[in-house]
Amino acid sequence: MSLPIYATFGQRVWYYAFRVICAIIFIFLITPILVVIPLSFNAENFFTFTPEMLRLDPEGYSLKHYQDFFTNAEWQRSFKNSLIIAPIATVIAVTLGTLAAIGLSQSHVPFRRAIMAILISPMIVPLIISATGMFFFYSKIGNFMEGTMGLDKNFVGYVKVILAHSVLGIPFVIITVTATLVGFDRSLTRAAASMGANPVTTFFKVQMPLILPGVISGGLFAFITSFDEVVVVLFVGSASQKTLPWQMFTGLREQISPTILAVATILVVISILLLTMVELLRRRSERLRGLSPG
């Protein structure tokens, strides 16, 4: 990708022009996030760059929105809820999704297309429709669990949101895991089986490590789907299950508070950490697969 020394003038111009174009697109991608970060230190309660901020006057900056996030009970509760709901929803989506993807990747699966379409459907049905449809369904389930099984109202609330979110995360797991399995060499499992490993051992010792990147990236998508989902939780959940996006959404609607931006900044930092982790994992898996570390 580097420019060869024999490149003509035109090639050189194009080479640099192309880099500039790419740089501009990257700027387009990243600016909204960069804008959010300074605004989260705004001393005023608006999403506005104040003259003080532009003068880099320390007066114009403050940590009060961060303070608000860490001290306000509503924010804390919603953050905690998101941390409960998203991981559990992810685990469900990943477990069921990976199993199904392995099933789907076998040869001779009857009705493969139809099954695939059904499993992908949560991604393609407009969210607002899914949300209302699921509301009625989960209300019935909730009534049953509370009334007949006598479970705690709060617990039932969490179950409803977690199930709804795991459904939404499933298509991502299916897509990523099947994509990884397309390149999976079946002779490996046969080799393992021929050496006396039972299917379970084969799965965990041979297949799993190799499709792990797909599973992890599917899991991360599922996690983000739940962590960033506002429409369905607004319908299916009740206030005790208020998640972070819900709190942000009402924050945007009803109050002017850059606390939302502070939260976003914190999440961006967490995202960077997560992405770095994924990258490290990926490098490890490639080492394991004997591919060059690039």
């Binding site: 199993l99 199904a100 040869s107 699966v109 009857p110 459907s121 449809g133 459904v167």
Partner: peptide, 29 residues
């Protein structure tokens, strides 16, 4: 046997999605 095994792997999820997504959406529509 192979088919059954594949379907057995798919079945839990398929059932879950059918029950908690396809049916409610159908009901809504």
């Amino acid at each position: 046997v192979q088919k059954m095994r594949a379907l057995a792997l798919i079945a839990p999820l398929l059932l879950f999605v059918m029950l908690s997504f396809i049916m409610p959406i159908g009901d809504m529509l």
